[in-house]
Write a protein that binds this DNA or RNA. Structure first.
Length: 840
DNA sequence: CAGTGAGCGAGCTTCCGCTTGACTT
């Protein structure tokens, strides 16, 4: 019996393939890349032809060890990673690390996970394509060089811990530039004229017909004049034009289009879409969710065909092949589709069901007939008035086709009124004849403002990045997290402003006028650049325009393609880039700057005459009053929410120094108002109370402060459910997620089975704590690794910081083997808290 | 959760793309 080892990238895939291949083959997964550049600058020997120094990261050691063991036992190792640049490199790294001999190694690829495709692949093995591997090495090393040389420049010139990179910096640029466009946008008003006509029907009733004037009217006076004219005019149907209209279904989902549609239709953030999709993939419901291909396998097309014939009939069927048009697509996988089209609904969580349904519909629709519509345009003239006429439009579905199951959504322009995407009954026009004269019910002219450019949502940013060929399906969601974690971009939470608009209405009784209000400029849930993002972007744009160029990635991809084709040497490509890039970095690093990057001098303070400036401080945007060289030290104040370095005025800056201030006394103790890391607060009797957004900390009265203090006290009492005299450190509290136990600074869940937490005894509480401690014990090892991330420890309370830092440090030195990984902020914080309690 | 920030200074931060876990007080 032959001993075969097959290595794929994903464990879920390994499981499926194992079933096809039987016991002669053992199928294992590499879990993606198994090697990466060393974290230190030694990761690349620039002097020596960019020789990369690869190492197996700590969290891959176990997997590599297992693969080594199995490879030793196997007579043939089949490297079956994906058929793209990264996949080829994974195979190469595997063959290097596992020390595979050429005669025992075979490289295979398949595009769909079916028995026949896999057997076919096994029958057609090839060798590793070293040119493709070199293209990947060039990509990897270039990204490292850019990221690890630019970031330190930012630490030095702007603020520590910032980052720059080929993908993220361009993503930030898109958002910064959009925000500037919005800031410079001046809305222009014009009047939109809509008439409601009365169309008589045969039964004697009348039906209303809405029609819009062919042009907008620029001014109020002109709009009024036109309406006055209309009062005495006749309206005649001049023309009725019917034209057929076809609509085609959208192609099957890729990562990017799935993220967009799930955001629009289900309201999912891109990270959630990916999590739910991963679940569906692992349970075998859908194909791989990180793909840029719109291709469907023959199997999927066949199953779709059967389903359509079975459920809807032959006239709904139309087999289609879609081709990718996105830049830089590598198409190592299929489109995202259900593994079995016959399964129309699944069991699982509500989110899983919804996402599956969306994928199923999109896939089936892609193999369905086009929809046939009829569009009607009615031209209604105003007798005796030239240049103006009314237009009524209607759309009727003649044959629904794919619309029977799926309608693609489109981003509505922000602030725009909802436009129905497709015909509804309201779009049906009543029967009419050319030459018919129509009376009107009313004609109105409504003031409308031009709309500012829309801010990006997570999903629309992904679409833009994909369009520019920047980033990959596996990185869209992480990139969006990164730029938010660095503080370059935030999700907006402002409702926007309101404005008044006018409306003139003509009815049978004559001309009337009214005003109304509308809100505009909301940025809720949309991506907004911060001061830090703006300053970093402007800095990079000024000194590293090449890397910031929207075409940088696309251009460099072309040279990677050249490497893959064997026409260029990867070291040459890197040298070409680096000999220009590196000196640029060095010169910017050594550049003497008169002011801090992004600093704005506002002028001199009216009261003190001291100079005032705004800039990025160590903790974010800050105003400074005074000269650091002067005898008297400068004063600092943090900018408030909604203020920005770019727009802050001298007066606003001056006001910021009015805090902290004493508002008065309450219960014989001073009431102080200040502004901290988390916004404005009231300090009284050793306690802090947040000041809500609706109050201005500069103007808030003592009475309001007292109200807030009392409200906080009441909330604190309600928060407290129970405590025990014997154990003052243990409390039952009411939190955001319901009641929980707080004990020695750690929190513990109360299971849902407990009906009334008030009735819990001390023993029961300790029991619950013990149970949960046990559960976390196993995770400590992983946590210790994250503890190496000391920087986050610093953000802990100042008072506790010193002891905590020491504790965290101890953990790291003890477990030196577990080197720091890119631990997430949340994880790191938690670990620090635990380091105190978990002494081993 | 909280009021910091130009005396010293060591050592830290950081990239993009492959993959999955562990995690919600």
């Amino acid at each position: 019996m032959q001993n075969n080892l097959v290595i794929v990238e994903s464990p879920a895939k390994a499981k499926t393939i194992q079933k096809f291949l039987g016991t002669d083959f053992k199928v294992l997964s590499s879990y993606g890349h198994i090697r990466d550049l060393n974290k230190k600058h030694a990761g690349i020997d620039v002097e020596n032809d960019f020789t990369p120094n690869y190492e197996v990261p700590a969290d891959k050691k176990n997997i590599v060890a297992e693969l080594k063991r199995e490879a030793k036992k196997a007579s043939i190792v089949w490297l079956a990673s994906d058929e793209d640049r990264e996949g080829e490199a994974i195979s190469w790294h595997l063959s290097e690390v596992l020390k595979l001999k050429p005669e025992q190694t075979k490289r295979i690829v398949f595009h769909e996970i079916t028995k026949s495709a896999i057997l076919d692949a096994i029958n057609n093995p090839r060798e590793i394509d070293i040119n493709l591997v070199d293209a990947q090495q060039a990509r990897r090393i270039l990204d490292r060089l850019v990221g690890f040389e630019l970031s330190p420049v930012l630490w030095k010139k702007v603020k520590p811990s910032l980052s720059a990179g080929r993908v993220q910096s361009v993503a930030v640029r898109l958002i910064v530039e959009r925000e500037r466009e919005i800031r410079n946008f001046k809305p222009e008003a014009s009047y939109r004229v809509v008439a409601v006509f009365k169309v008589p029907e045969e039964n004697g009733r009348t039906v209303e017909l809405k029609a819009e004037l062919n042009k907008r009217i620029p001014t109020y006076a002109q709009a009024k004049e036109l309406l006055e004219h209309c009062a005495s005019k006749l309206f005649t149907i001049k023309d009725i034009k019917k034209s057929p209209l076809k609509k085609n279904p959208a192609p099957p989902f890729t990562t990017s289009t799935l993220q967009q549609e799930a955001a629009r239709k289900l309201g999912f953030p891109v990270a959630r879409t990916m999590m739910v999709a991963q679940k569906l993939y692992e349970s075998g419901r859908i194909t791989y969710m990180r793909t840029d291909s719109v291709n469907l396998s023959g199997l999927a097309i066949n199953a779709s065909k059967e389903t359509i014939l079975d459920k809807m009939g032959e006239k709904y069927l139309k087999i289609r092949k879609f081709t990718t048009k996105s830049k830089g697509a590598q198409e190592a996988h299929e489109a995202i589709r259900p593994t079995d089209m016959h399964t129309t609904a699944i069991t699982g969580s509500a989110q899983e069901k919804k996402l599956y349904d969306l994928i199923w519909k999109r896939t089936i629709a892609s193999q369905m007939a086009e929809a046939q519509l009829e569009k009607t345009n009615v031209h209604i003239s105003i007798d005796g008035v030239d240049g103006y006429h009314f237009v009524a439009t209607g759309e009727v579905i003649k044959f629904d086709g794919f619309l029977k199951v799926y309608r693609e959504s489109f981003d509505n322009h922000q602030d725009e009124e909802e436009v129905p995407e497709l015909p509804t009954d309201a779009n049906m026009l009543p029967p009419m004849k050319v030459g018919e004269v129509l009376p009107f019910a009313n004609i109105s002219a409504t003031e409308r403002f031009t709309l500012q450019p829309p801010r990006y949502t997570e999903a629309s940013l992904v679409r833009k990045l994909e369009e520019l060929g920047i980033g990959r399906p596996s990185t869209y969601a992480p990139t969006i997290s990164t730029i938010q974690n660095r503080g370059y971009v935030v999700r907006g939470d402002s409702e926007g402003e309101t404005r008044v608009f006018k409306r003139i209405v003509l009815t049978g009784d004559g001309l009337g006028e009214e005003t109304d209000t509308e809100s505009f400029g909301s940025n809720k849930g949309r991506l907004v650049s911060t001061d830090i993002g703006t300053v970093v972007n402007d800095f990079l744009m000024a000194y590293f325009p090449n890397v910031m160029n929207y075409n940088f990635t696309a251009d460099i991809e072309l040279t990677f393609d050249e490497i893959a084709a064997g026409n260029k040497k990867w070291t040459e490509v890197l040298r070409n880039f680096y000999t220009k890039f590196h000196p640029n970095v060095v010169s910017v690093e050594n550049m003497k700057m008169e002011h801090r990057v992004g600093e704005r001098i506002l002028g001199n303070d009216a009261e003190t005459g001291l100079p005032i400036s705004v800039k990025i401080g160590r903790y974010g945007p800050v105003v400074q009053m005074g000269d650091p060289d002067a005898e008297e030290k400068p004063r600092f104040a943090q900018l408030q929410k909604g203020q920005s370095i770019e727009t802050l005025t001298l007066e606003e800056a001056h006001d910021l120094f009015k805090l902290p201030r004493i508002a008065g006394e309450y219960e014989d103790l001073t009431v102080k108002i200040g502004v901290g890391r988390f916004g404005p607060y009231i300090y009284h009797h050793g306690k802090y109370v947040s000041i809500p957004k609706t109050e201005d900390p500069l103007k808030i009265s003592l009475d309001t402060c007292i109200e807030l203090i009392e409200a906080k006290r009441k909330a604190d009492i309600e928060k407290h459910i129970k405590s025990f005299d014997e154990e003052p450190e243990l409390e039952i509290l009411n939190g955001r997620w319901g009641p929980y136990i707080s004990y020695q600074k750690s929190n513990y869940k109360i299971p849902k089975s407990v009906e009334d937490p008030k009735l819990l005894s001390l023993e029961e509480c300790l029991e619950l704590i013990k149970k949960q401690e046990k559960g976390t014990a196993g995770k400590r090892k992983a946590n210790a690794r994250a503890a190496a991330n000391k920087k986050k420890a610093k953000t802990a309370t100042k008072k506790k910081a010193t002891t905590k830092k020491a504790a965290a440090k101890k953990t790291t030195t003890k477990k030196t083997a577990a080197k720091k990984t890119a631990a997430k902020k949340v994880v790191a914080k938690k670990v620090v808290a635990k380091a105190d309690t978990t002494k081993e």
